[in-house]
Amino acid sequence: MATEQHSQEGVVKHRHRHEGPQKHIVVFIFSIVLTLIAFAAVAAGGVNPAFAVVLLLVMAVLQVFVQMGFWMHLKDRGHLIPIIFMIGGFFVAGTSIIMALYWVWWD
């Protein structure tokens, strides 16, 4: 969060508050919990395989958002261009995968 600091000339300087380690620790614990949930779903053995696959995909997507948002700092200002390029890359990769599957299973 930005705070305002007035100088003697009347110019407003914006200072960004330093992000402390508390948030990083919470996000790290959240990442570990997501990993443990995914591991437990597979290690349990009695879980329906379709449910396990869906659960693993959901955990993977959440991990991607956590990794990119907090560890790659994409939640901060000034990261619009990398975000746009990553969305473009996801679009190209997703389209390629869908077209490859369509091509393989074409009758």
Score class of each variant (00 low, 15 high):
H79W: 06
W106V: 08
A50L: 12
F28L: 14
L74Y: 05
F30R: 13
V64R: 01
G88C: 00
A52Q: 14
L74H: 06
S31D: 08
V26Q: 08
L62R: 09
F70C: 01
F51P: 00
R15N: 06
I32G: 02
V53T: 15
V42E: 10
Q67M: 14
V61F: 02
S31Y: 02
V61S: 09
F85M: 05
F70P: 00
I25Q: 08
Q63T: 13
M59A: 15
W106C: 02
R17W: 03
S96G: 11
M68L: 15
P49R: 05
G46E: 12
P21G: 15
M99D: 11
T95W: 01
A43Y: 10
E9T: 12
T35L: 15
L57I: 11
L36T: 03
A2R: 14
H18Y: 05
I97K: 08
L74P: 01
V27W: 10
M59Y: 07
F85D: 04
F70T: 09
V26M: 10
F90Y: 07
L62G: 03
R17A: 11
I25H: 04
G78H: 05
G69M: 05
T95V: 14
A50M: 14
S7E: 14
I83A: 11
A40L: 07
V47S: 02
G94Q: 00
V104Q: 12
H6L: 15
A43L: 14
V12M: 04
R77C: 01
H24I: 02
R77E: 14
D107I: 01
Y102S: 07
G20Q: 06
Q67C: 07
P82C: 02
Q22D: 05
R77N: 06
P49C: 02
V66K: 14
V64K: 03
I81C: 02
T35D: 05
G89Y: 01
P21H: 13
P82S: 04
V27G: 04
G89Q: 00
Q22C: 02
A41P: 00
R77L: 07
N48C: 03
I81H: 10
G88S: 01
E4Y: 03
A41C: 13
V92N: 00
A100L: 09
P49G: 08
A50N: 08
R15K: 09
V53K: 14
M72G: 02
K23T: 13
H6F: 06
W71Q: 12
T95E: 06
V92K: 00
K23E: 11
K75C: 07
H79M: 09
Q8P: 01
G45R: 06
P21A: 15
I37E: 12
H73W: 08
H79G: 03
P49V: 11
Q22A: 11
A43K: 09
Q63G: 02
I87P: 00
W103L: 14
T35K: 05
T95L: 05
G45D: 08
M86G: 01
F90M: 06
S96A: 15
W103D: 07
T35M: 12
D76V: 01
L101H: 13
D76P: 00
V54N: 09
F28W: 08
A40Y: 10
G69R: 05
H16T: 11
A44C: 08
L57W: 14
H79Q: 12
G89H: 01
A93C: 06
V66T: 10
V53L: 15
L55E: 15
I32F: 12
Q8A: 11
N48G: 01
M68D: 08
E19F: 02
A2L: 13
W105P: 00
V27I: 13
G45N: 02
H24N: 12
H73E: 13
